[in-house]
Simulated scan of single mutants.
Amino acid sequence: MPAATRNTDTRRTILDTARRIMAHKGYSAVGINEVLAAAGVPKGSFYHYFTSKDAFGEAMLRSYFADYVADMDAVLARSGQSAAERLMAYWQQWRETQSAEGCQGRCLVVKLGAEVSDLSEAMRLTLKEGTSTIVDRIERTITDGLADRSLSVDDDPRAVAQALYDMWLGASVMCKIHRSLAPLDTATAVTRKLLGL
């Protein structure tokens, strides 16, 4: 295996391992040595891949959003479904992801958003960029739904997309707090109302 490929694979292994651990423990509670040990990577090699813990956190969030948006795009591009059906399939996938493991979820925005936004401007900006990309996809699907008449909204598609995303983030936090799916059920019902379904 070429060295460049091996380096890329090792870097990806570190990021994926960190994502899994930090989705449960948070950012500050996880040390670099814990991540490297779980990834099976020698301790001294961290700075070969990342210049600092902040640079590592930013790279982890970028990797997370790239994977998230790819999964989102796959759901929102399904053929044979209206825009409304595709959008509701996205929210259903969100519900299933956030209800995993006793409502512990796997959304790094939910888990790390408030924490890292206060710790690192670079990570805050990465979160802002990533969440804006998600809202862009929701807005585009709402616009498609208006065109195919599978949904209707009383406000600008961007404003509705932002409100929906914000509501689902909040519902996911409440799901974790209450260890209950009720906030996600409420979010689903309100989503249907906002989209005229």
Rank of each mutant, 00 (worst) to 15 (best):
T131F: 03
Y68Q: 14
A77T: 14
D67M: 11
R78P: 00
G130W: 12
A83Y: 01
I138L: 15
A89K: 01
S152W: 00
A74D: 13
Y68D: 12
R158F: 13
S120D: 08
V109L: 11
E115G: 05
Q104I: 01
L151F: 04
Q92G: 13
C107I: 05
D155G: 01
V135T: 15
Q81Y: 13
C107A: 11
T97K: 11
S152A: 12
K128Y: 05
Q98Y: 03
V173F: 09
D67I: 04
L112C: 06
M72Q: 09
C107W: 03
D118C: 03
E129T: 13
L76M: 13
V116D: 09
S150E: 00
T141N: 10
A84Y: 14
V110Q: 07
I138W: 06
M123D: 10
R95V: 01
G145S: 08
R106L: 12
A100G: 01
T131H: 07
S79A: 15
D144P: 00
W91C: 09
P157R: 11
G145R: 03
V116I: 15
G102H: 10
W91L: 13
Y90N: 04
S99P: 00
A171G: 06
I134Q: 09
Y165R: 07
E85L: 00
L108W: 03
Q162S: 15
A89L: 07
Q162F: 10
R95N: 06
W91V: 09
D155K: 12
S79G: 14
E139Q: 14
D154H: 10
R140V: 10
E139I: 02
A122Q: 12
E129I: 05
T97F: 02
S117I: 01
M167I: 10
A74L: 11
M72N: 01
V135I: 15
V110F: 08
A114K: 13
T133N: 12
W168G: 04
G130H: 13
A100L: 02
Y90T: 04
A163C: 15
G105K: 01
